[in-house]
Computed example of a mutant assay.
Amino acid sequence: MSGLAVVTGATAGIGAAFARRLHADGYALLLVARDAERLAAMATELGGAGGSVETVPADLTTGEGLAAVEKQLRERPVEMLVNNAGISLNRSFVESTAEDEERLLALNVTAVMRLTLAVLPGMVERGRGGVVNVSSVAGFGVPMPGSTYSASKAWVTNFSESVGESVRSRGVRVMALCPGYTKTEFHQRAGINMSRTPEWMWLAADAVVADGLRDLRRGKRVSVPDWKYKVAVFGMRHLPRGLIRRATRDVRGRIGRDEFDRDEAQRREGKS
């Protein structure tokens, strides 16, 4: 399949991996992200290999930015939409603000819903197309202590399954891609220190994208890349919830606590 593919959050991590893979597969690209300079750099990188690459600098947490992208999607025959843009917060809900929580929901939930709705009528009319909504294993079953990120991703997964079921008979595929820990800028941008996470738990963005596109072709509505996370999701769905809660630990705010501990240790050393 070729045609126009739209990727949000396209300048790093999973979004950039999708952009490179879809470009290599022959798609023309419309890339969306907040940072105009990084978008231009990505377009230059991909454009040098041939093919059409357009960019739309937009902040999808704002009404103006979201409306600008929606307009593009409604007016053009989009064959593939990848809703990759998303954020997390480096604090527990009780330490958060309403403004930050609304910003998280605007990007993780509202933008996914509105951009999916912008492309689906055209896809259904043409009888083909695909939507990949990047979710997370964090959205399966067990709430993460103090985290609204996991709740937002639970919505993305359920939404994708529900919408995918409603349009599959029309030749359109909608899928939630639910990776585990992936080597991207995501945690760094959120201020979350992941240095204690074992190396074996990390996935490569290119491998996540390859698994996701393979599962989309197979008609799956939920894709969980890598066998270890498939096992983890099976456990989340079938093991007693109390057992899963005891195995879950909150990584939010770890940078702040680590910095406090380090400063406190240095202060004590200075006194001794």
Rank of each mutant, 00 (worst) to 15 (best):
M1P: 13
S2W: 03
L4T: 00
A5C: 02
V6A: 00
T8E: 00
T11N: 09
I14M: 13
G15C: 09
A19N: 01
A19P: 01
L22G: 03
H23V: 02
Y27E: 02
Y27C: 03
L30Y: 07
L31R: 05
R34C: 01
R34P: 00
R34S: 05
A36L: 15
R38C: 08
T44D: 15
T44C: 08
E45I: 06
G48Q: 09
V53K: 04
T55H: 04
P57Y: 00
A58L: 00
T61P: 02
G63P: 04
E70D: 06
K71I: 04
K71C: 06
E75F: 07
R76A: 10
P77D: 04
P77K: 06
S88A: 15
F93I: 08
E95P: 04
T97M: 04
D100A: 11
E101L: 11
R103T: 05
R103S: 03
L104M: 12
L105Q: 07
N108Q: 03
A111L: 01
L115A: 04
L117W: 14
L117I: 07
L120G: 01
P121E: 01
P121F: 00
E125L: 12
R126Y: 14
R128Y: 14
G130L: 09
V134L: 00
V137D: 07
A138G: 07
G139Y: 01
P145D: 10
T148V: 12
Y149G: 04
K153S: 00
A154S: 11
T157C: 09
T157L: 13
N158I: 10
F159Q: 03
S160T: 03
E161D: 08
V163A: 12
V163K: 14
G164P: 15
S166C: 13
V167F: 11
S169V: 10
S169N: 13
G171F: 01
V172N: 13
R173Q: 14
A176L: 13
L177T: 07
P179M: 08
T184E: 08
E185D: 14
Q188S: 11
Q188R: 12
R189L: 10
G191S: 01
G191H: 01
I192G: 06
I192M: 10
I192P: 03
N193Y: 06
N193I: 03
M194K: 09
R196T: 15
W200I: 15
M201Y: 10
L203C: 04
L203D: 08
A204R: 14
A204W: 03
D206H: 05
V208A: 11
A210P: 05
D211G: 11
R214E: 15
R214I: 09
L216K: 08
R217E: 15
R218S: 11
K220I: 04
V222L: 09
V222W: 07
V222P: 08
V224D: 13
V224R: 05
P225A: 09
D226C: 10
K230N: 10
G235V: 10
R237F: 10
H238Y: 02
L239M: 02
A247Y: 04
A247N: 03
T248H: 08
T248Q: 08
V251Y: 14
G253Q: 05
R257P: 07
R257C: 07
E259I: 07
E259Y: 08
F260H: 14
D261S: 09
R267L: 12
K271A: 13
K271Q: 14
S272R: 15
